[in-house]
Design a protein around this nucleic acid. Structure first.
Length: 113
DNA sequence: ATTCTGACGTGGG
DNA sequence: CCCCACGCCAGAA
């Protein structure tokens, strides 16, 4: 119950930590991987708490279309974009270019469980 | 306690 | 193609 809930957030952090450099994923992908495909919003909320987790690259998590919808939550206004560009990801107007190419699927990388 | 919003996603018109 | 509504859960007013 509640414990599961806590575990859910923890899982989100773990998956996010497993995102390799220069890769990005979507909230829905993580949510689905955790079995909460309908609670993709919770993944974003979990990222909110990830602010205390330096090992959790929240900037590598975007919505399913590769849009940096949560850049407003970062320290700066374009910090998220800068971080992604720093990893070799081209971002234009909050939109990741070649999103599918940089997309990191937990089901594939972690072995869909 | 009630209501709304929010870092999403999917479906319908 | 664009716009609207619903579901999901949690937090803030």
């Amino acid at each position: 119950m509640n414990q599961d809930n806590k575990n859910f957030f923890q899982k989100v952090y773990e998956v996010a930590k497993h995102i390799p450099y220069g890769r990005v994923t979507s909230y829905g992908a993580i949510a689905k991987y955790l079995g909460a495909a309908r609670s993709a919003r919770m993944v974003g909320w979990a990222m909110n708490g990830a602010g205390s987790m330096p090992e959790v690259p929240a900037h590598r998590v975007v919505n399913k279309i590769g849009l940096l919808t949560g850049k407003h939550h970062f320290d700066g206004t374009n910090l998220m974009q800068q971080l992604l560009e720093s990893e070799g990801i081209q971002v234009i107007d909050n939109q990741i270019q070649d999103f599918e190419t940089h997309f990191w699927d937990p089901f594939v990388e972690l072995g869909g469980e």
